[in-house]
């Protein structure tokens, strides 16, 4: 076969992939139409059969695994030579030995403040030091409330990039909760989550209306929040 024909075939395939019909492709090359048509039909059959769709939950599951990998890598980095984080961890450890004023101050810090990494590091340490899955789930549920407060405050300061980072953290907490809880232990956690859900979802919804630029991210956070509540309900059933 000539290279010219392969080029024409490739162009038609490209157009077919973009959504053009076989007839339109053939109309462009009437001289090659007889030769092109059966190949394009075969290509269309392959393309239709190739439209395989993964399980709807697969993307979220793998995404969650990736976030865990990112988190673990971040923690490893702390123990390498990340001066800022190493300092943060050091300060957290100091808090655990004797409550220092710096770390206490960090506990109320916001995502745009220098001591915020200390606050996050403290949260990680608390999670590491909590042996049971249920205990970890409860901590994550508390951190959900913190993240919502931070989102509200950062949105108030018109800092969309910071809000986006905090929303990402919020999603991480929400997604990990259902994986940690056990059927027998779930009631108290569900109560805690539900007590706060109306307020937290209300805050996100209000911000969504007030800050259109953040709308999609906030909407997604609300959806994940609702999915988490449903997931907890399902486990309890």
């Amino acid at each position: 076969m000539s290279k010219g024909f392969e080029k024409i075939l490739d162009e038609c395939l490209e157009r077919l992939i973009q959504g053009e019909s076989i007839e339109e492709c053939l109309a462009r090359y009437p001289e090659q139409a007889a030769e092109l048509e059966p190949l394009l039909k075969a290509a269309l059959t392959v393309r239709e059969a190739s439209a395989l769709e993964p399980r709807p939950e697969l993307k979220a599951q793998i995404g969650s695994r990736l976030r865990s990998v990112i988190e673990v890598r971040g923690q490893r980095r702390v123990f390498r030579l990340g001066w800022g984080w190493a300092l943060a961890i050091g300060m957290v450890l100091l808090l655990m030995i004797a409550s220092t004023s710096t770390v206490v101050a960090a506990s109320g810090s916001l995502p745009d403040e220098p001591l915020y990494p200390v606050k996050i590091a403290m949260e990680h340490v608390r999670l590491w030091l909590t042996p049971s899955d249920m205990g970890k789930a409860k901590l994550h549920a508390r951190f959900v409330n913190r993240r919502i407060d931070e989102i509200a405050q950062m949105a108030g300061k018109d800092k969309p990039e910071v809000v986006a980072r905090v929303i990402h953290r919020l999603e991480g907490h929400l997604e990990v909760i259902p994986r940690l809880v056990r059927e027998r232990e779930i009631h108290a956690l569900r109560q805690f989550l539900e007590q706060n859900a109306a307020t937290n979802l209300g805050i996100l919804h209000t911000l969504e209306e007030k800050k259109p630029a953040l709308g999609p991210a906030l909407k997604r956070a609300r959806e994940i929040y609702t999915q988490t509540l449903h997931a907890i309900e399902e486990v309890e059933k």
Partner: peptide, 13 residues
């Protein structure tokens, strides 16, 4: 790649 694509479609057809 174009040649492989062509021969593959011929075989599939």
């Amino acid at each position: 790649v174009k040649a492989l694509q062509h021969s593959a479609l011929m075989a599939l057809r």
